[in-house]
Design a protein around this nucleic acid. Sequence first.
DNA 1: CTTGACTCTGCCGTCGGCGTGAAGGTCTAG
DNA 2: CTAGACCTTCACGCCGACGGCAGAGTCAAG
Lengths: 168, 168
Amino acid sequence: MRIGELARRTGATPRALRYYEEQGLLTPERRPSGYREYGEPDVAAVHGIRTLLAAGLNSAVIAEILPGLPPPGSRGPGPTCPELLAGLAAERARITRQMDELAAARALLDAIMGAEAPSSVILAGREPAGPSARSSAGPSARSSAGPAVRAEPAGRKLGGARSRAVLE
Amino acid sequence: MRIGELARRTGATPRALRYYEEQGLLTPERRPSGYREYGEPDVAAVHGIRTLLAAGLNSAVIAEILPGLPPPGSRGPGPTCPELLAGLAAERARITRQMDELAAARALLDAIMGAEAPSSVILAGREPAGPSARSSAGPSARSSAGPAVRAEPAGRKLGGARSRAVLE
DNA sequence: CTTGACTCTGCCGTCGGCGTGAAGGTCTAG
DNA sequence: CTAGACCTTCACGCCGACGGCAGAGTCAAG
């Protein structure tokens, strides 16, 4: 498929897809005309890329680890082996830390909101969001809400999640 | 206290604290010499600010919601009321979404790492990090690992966590 | 008084993942 | 053949939370 279709099927913009190629994340073939030609596996690859980007990994790191995707079982002790594995573990730890920070921030927001909650809450999109009881923590909150009514130019931005706080 | 002490006690740099003031997040008093003078509550405030910043809220939003901190009970239906509450709910939803994305990314990393795990894993800092069993998901993972051996200039960076992916 | 640590106000630099044209080829339905 | 949709390669712009530096003033101790 060509770049437009891949874009439609992944939610990325053509510009983003070219950027991914420039960063070595994708290596589509070329038609004699210069047009990029993508294959089916690229759809999954782009989804993976976007997931990792959204988690704050930069393109360089992703470029190193992406080759371990196409089949579920990678190529033995090949590219996924040396200190690269250490980098992976570090990224994993970073993600976990970030999740903790997010949880803390959400709890803080809940504490601030907790006071009152007029009917206007329903204007905030869908999903109740606020803490139902006004005392202890509500452990549920299913997450993954609806598209969250954003009216920005194109609703497909990403924007990484960097976080190296020490906060002792 | 002066800016240096507040910096030491919060992990922020003096530069960051001035920036927070510039953004209206802090309003320290001034000595006749021009030196900023902070109070004890500012310590908690800075921690809150950093928590929210690390969660991806921008300074403008934080400036609106921070006045609801000093006492646990805010000032009734005062500033924490109108469509501001809607904004809060939106931010809350964003955070929850982001947590989902992080979980997805971590699962992806686990899938990539899952193949083999030589002894070199211990080089990645501490915390096993990798999935112990090679099949189903490991629901535990306590998070909040050690300081995560980073040797950067000053180990106190933040860096927000933006994420507006649609990813249908 | 002097020294050294601390603080002040500008102001420019940075970094990553794209957005957004501009100027020009390619493809395909009618 | 032609229009219009799609594609190509530059190349600059942006944004937010600071980092870092310069030049100058302040403060406490010896």
